[in-house]
């Protein structure tokens, strides 16, 4: 690890001002906010992240979890993943979010990891994490050895010929299905970014992953109030029974009325360059009977355009089975 200045931000403006000194908030940022550290310290040890200044934002009072006045769920940026997963409001109204978080990592990591940190976690692509390998995400234009190499775990949706990395988050998948909004504050003031727009597809610049600009600090995430009668579930498929990233996962939320699907929302994890949600696939379900055929239709639509790599073509079928099974589970 190269050396760096470690500073503890006294307040939010100070943190934002420090962050704004970096030329980018994306790969290669010279200033990084430190929350749980489970991504940042990991990547700094690997040399993938090399900030000159690390700004500790753990004592800025950003860890609240509560019901907002408008009924939204308010989740502070540094609320720990464990606290969020076990929070009574989340367990009661956002079951898939609780399940998604608990399906990720280990208790130790969830005790440290934060909401914002989880949203900003980086791909687990082995070439991205290996400094000796070329990687367009680390160094645009250097090449992508994953395309001809070990790509079993990687993305089949939203990829480009420059990058096939997948987003590894479980939490973000559930949040995406729940229409979460990311609240950020920057030097020029605050803004709200729907999670659906928060991540940027790789294209030719896979180093740019989010909408964040230098200095922009995620302060909290909000989830709209739960829909009446909605049931949700998170299903994660992986090789190992625990403590492993997803091959495929899905967060599914369904409202039934008169034996038909009144509304369905679902998102996929493990398969996309970003957490993946296809509105058209949800439309397919609206008004249809909650049966295997309908679920399969939705799954087909959701996976439409999937581009398999040499070792991960199976993810298409696996994702479909995952979706169908989650829907069956939640509607049975």
């Amino acid at each position: 690890m190269q050396t760096f200045d470690l500073v503890r931000a006294s307040d939010r403006p100070a943190a934002i001002a420090a962050g704004a000194e970096s030329a980018t908030a994306q790969q290669g940022a010279s200033v990084r906010f430190l929350a749980g550290g489970t991504t940042l310290i990991d990547l700094m040890k690997l040399g993938v992240e090399r900030p000159e200044r690390v700004v500790d934002i753990n004592r800025l009072g950003l860890d609240e979890i509560r019901k907002a006045e408008n009924g939204d769920l308010f989740v502070g940026a540094t609320a720990r993943n464990s606290d969020l997963a076990h929070h009574p409001l989340v367990r009661a109204d956002y079951a898939a979010l609780s399940q998604a978080i608990l399906a990720g990592a280990s208790t130790q990591l969830r005790n440290a990891a934060t909401t914002a940190g989880n949203l900003l976690q980086r791909t687990r692509c082995m070439y991205f994490r290996d400094l000796a390998s070329a990687c367009n995400k680390r160094k645009p234009g250097s090449g992508c050895p994953a395309i001809a190499g070990a790509n079993r775990m990687l993305a089949i949706l939203g990829t480009s010929n420059a990058c096939i990395a997948n987003n590894p988050s479980d939490m973000a998948v559930a949040m995406l299905a729940y229409d979460a909004v990311v609240h950020v504050q920057g030097v020029a003031g605050g803004r709200q970014i729907p999670l659906a727009d928060f991540y940027v597809l790789p294209g030719q610049r896979p180093d740019i992953e989010t909408m964040l600009a230098p200095g922009e600090l995620i302060t909290h995430v909000t989830l709209p109030p739960p829909k009446t009668g909605e049931r949700s579930v998170y299903l994660k498929l992986r090789d190992r029974a625990s403590y492993e990233f997803a091959l495929v996962s899905t967060a599914v939320a369904v409202t039934l009325a008169d034996g038909k699907i009144a509304n369905a929302r679902f998102a996929l994890g493990g398969v996309g360059a970003r957490p993946w949600r296809v509105r058209k696939a949800e439309d397919v379900l609206r008004g249809s009977a909650p049966d295997e055929r309908a679920f399969r239709n939705a799954a087909d639509t959701c996976l439409d355009g999937a581009r398999p790599q040499s070792h991960n073509g199976f993810k298409i079928e696996l994702a479909k089975r995952c979706i169908v099974h989650a829907f069956k589970q939640v509607t049975s």
Binding site: D130, A148, G149, A150, S242, Y243
Partner: peptide, 25 residues
């Protein structure tokens, strides 16, 4: 262990990518 054909590196050289059984397995 998976060796990258181009570089010859054992590319999954860590305990997140070379997975061994956990308690839950």
């Amino acid at each position: 262990t998976e060796y990258d054909a181009a570089s010859g590196a054992p590319i999954n050289a860590n305990l997140a990518d070379y997975v061994v059984a956990t308690n839950a397995d």
